[in-house]
């Protein structure tokens, strides 16, 4: 016989990961719903997943590759840009979905109990489907430009995980804040735009003066994006992506994730009252 004890909670909450595990089927269904619904009643359907990064790539290629002549190492600029856009788009989509997820699910939050962590998690997971499709496009693109994949690609899942952890960490903070302060909704587009220019997506980090490059590693997405290029396009790993600095990136991502989860769990108790 299961017993549920309901009482006011004070102070810092526990993570409650076991409850999330118990509700993994709901998580699955929410992800499935997001994916299923995303491109319903659109004429192009899933083509949008391919079109969006391709158009961005084309714009960046003309603007930065042709006009500004941003160096792209050995790789052709379009592939260079797409290899950076791939993890970046995953990150920005996940962050946006996770951050707005709670407010968008207010009808669920006020009517039924389940571990609230499931909601931002579903945002981060459902973006993986778009990622997989874009990844296939990249492989075709590499084939067209004659870039041969290497065994380094086996490291991509680890890099993707770092992007997921970063997006989820910040997403947890922002989604919980969004419940009370809808400012988050206005802030988010700017945040993502600024963040993209702080991340070497359209340019390579080789462009940044050497003594400032360690600053880039404070941003976990630098490691992810440069790591993706390194794994896909070959070339030497930039020195600032050395093990200690990469460890710093991972450390920052984990701190944000754990603190975000604790903040989320602690504010969670009032979600239904104020959302």
């Amino acid at each position: 016989m299961s017993t549920i004890l309901i009482r006011p909670t004070r102070g810092l909450a526990s993570l409650g990961l076991r409850a999330v595990w118990e509700y993994r089927e709901l998580l699955f269904f929410l992800v499935w719903r997001d994916v299923k619904v995303r491109y319903k009643q659109t004429a192009l359907g899933v083509l949008w997943v391919i079109l969006q990064p391709l158009v961005s790539m084309a714009i960046f290629t003309v603007l930065f590759g042709v006009l500004l002549k941003v160096p792209s190492g050995d790789a052709p600029y379009p592939v260079f840009a797409f290899a950076g856009l791939l993890p970046w788009n995953y990150f920005s989509q996940s962050l946006t979905r996770a951050s707005t997820s709670l407010v968008q699910s207010s009808h669920l939050i006020t009517k039924i109990y389940f571990p609230r962590l499931v909601i931002p998690l579903s945002g981060v997971f459902s973006s993986l489907v778009d990622f997989a499709i874009s990844f296939a496009v990249l492989l075709i693109l590499m084939l067209l430009y004659g870039v041969t994949p290497t065994a380094r690609m086996l490291l991509l899942p680890a890099l993707l995980l770092l992007a997921l952890v970063t997006a989820l960490g910040f997403g947890l903070w922002l989604s919980a804040l969004n419940v009370k302060y809808r400012d988050v909704g206005y802030l988010l587009p700017f945040l993502i735009q600024i963040w993209m220019y702080l991340t070497p997506v359209v340019y390579g980090s080789a462009l940044i003066p050497e003594r400032y490059r360690f600053l880039l590693s404070l941003n976990p997405m630098t490691g992810v994006v440069e790591g993706f290029r390194w794994a896909l396009l070959g070339g030497e790993l930039e020195s600032y992506l050395s093990a200690p600095l990469l460890a710093l990136s991972v450390g920052i991502a984990l701190v944000v994730l754990v603190s975000g989860a604790l903040f989320f769990r602690t504010t969670e108790r009032s979600f239904a009252d104020i959302v």
Binding site: S2, L5, P8, S270
Partner: peptide
């Protein structure tokens, strides 16, 4: 239903 928390007091549900 555990949607919102009580301010004080407690409830036990068996089952």
């Amino acid at each position: 239903s555990r949607i919102t928390e009580p301010t004080t007091g407690l409830a036990e549900i068996h089952g």
